[in-house]
């Protein structure tokens, strides 16, 4: 690993001052960053350890839950309030990584984790995300794990998080601190599509810090399901995942939330499919129609055409489970 300096500030102000300097990088759990530093993919000059900041609590706020950015994945997954009110989030968190990694990984770090595209991870191969202008190795290469929505000629990588898919579905808001104070960003606008700047995974500025994620109260707790399809039964990244949440009144869908993972550069919220479900009976025909709507505009590459069949099937399956019809 390349050598680096290490500091552990104790105030948010000193963290913000430190990360504004070039060559610095925040470390929280380190479960992805240390991995990337060992591979030489990320080579910061200085790590700013933020674990002394008081951002670890999960608390009730007006109309929802406030999750500090340093809350651990395992802690949030088992938090009583989260389990009771947002079981979709708890399920998604438990579907990610391993028990050990969930004990290390934080909420903010989970959002900031990089793609697991093999061309990004191997410094000998071209990758516009790691080395802008070097080309996309995956475009004509081995692209089984890659995107079917929202990709560009520059990058077809996917965001690997499960947690983020549930947060996108649950209308979460990201609270971000910067030199000029705090700003709030809808979770769905936090991550970005690759376009011509695939080196940017999200809309967090270099000198900003994620302090929390808030999720508003909803009526989905009784009817939600996180479905993750992967190459082995556990401890693998999603080929396709679906976060499905329904508000059902007397068999009729009052409102729906749907998002997919493993299909795009960001958690892929399916708003058109959600609208298509509203007012419909909670049954197989409605779910099949929603899946059809969801897949409009999907495009496959050489090795990932299977996702064009797997994704709609996963949507139907997740909705069926969410509705309690499985």
């Amino acid at each position: 690993m390349k050598q680096f300096q290490y500091i552990r500030p104790i105030t948010q102000q000193s963290v913000l001052a430190a990360i504004a300097q070039p060559g610095t990088k925040i470390i929280a759990g380190g479960s992805n960053l240390v991995d990337l530093m060992k591979h030489g993919v990320m080579t910061p000059d200085k790590l700013v350890d933020i674990n002394k900041l008081p951002l670890r609590n999960v608390s009730t706020v007006k109309n929802g839950v406030h999750i500090g950015s340093l809350a651990l994945n395992s802690q949030v997954a088992e938090d009583k309030q989260v389990v009771a009110k947002f079981p979709l989030l708890s399920q998604a968190l438990n579907a990610g990584a391993s028990a050990q990694l969930r004990n290390m990984a934080t909420v903010g770090g989970n959002m900031m984790q990089r793609t697991r595209c093999p061309y990004f991870y191997d410094v000998a191969l071209p990758c516009n995300k790691r080395n802008p202008g070097s080309g996309c190795g995956a475009l004509e290469g081995f692209n089984r794990m890659h995107a079917i929505f929202g990709m560009s000629e520059q990058c077809i990588a996917v965001h690997p998080s499960d947690m983020a898919v549930a947060m996108a579905a649950l209308d979460a808001t990201v609270i971000i601190a910067g030199k000029k104070g705090e700003r709030r960003l809808p979770f769905v606008d936090f991550h970005r599509l690759p376009g011509n700047t695939p080196q940017l995974d999200n809309n967090l500025a270099k000198d900003e810090l994620i302090v929390a994620v808030e999720i508003p109260e909803n009526n989905y707790a009784a009817h939600s399901h996180y479905l993750k399809i992967r190459d082995r039964a556990s401890y693998a990244f999603a080929l396709v995942s679906v976060a499905a949440a329904l508000d059902i009144d007397n068999g009729t869908i009052r409102s729906a939330r749907l998002a997919m993972g493993g299909v795009a550069h960001k958690p892929w919220r399916l708003t058109a499919a959600e609208k298509a479900l509203v007012g419909k009976p909670a049954n197989a025909a409605s779910f099949e129609q929603a899946a059809q709507v969801a897949m409009q505009g999907a495009k496959a590459f050489k090795d990932n055409a299977f996702k064009l069949k797997l994704a709609p099937a996963a949507i139907i399956e997740a909705l069926t489970h969410a509705a309690g019809l499985a």
Binding site: G30, S31, D35, Q100, N103
Partner: peptide
Amino acid sequence: GACTVHVDGHRVNSCLTLAVM
């Protein structure tokens, strides 16, 4: 997971944990 240890009672991967932390 071969490197699993407990830190403050919680299991973690010691290979991805910086000693200074």
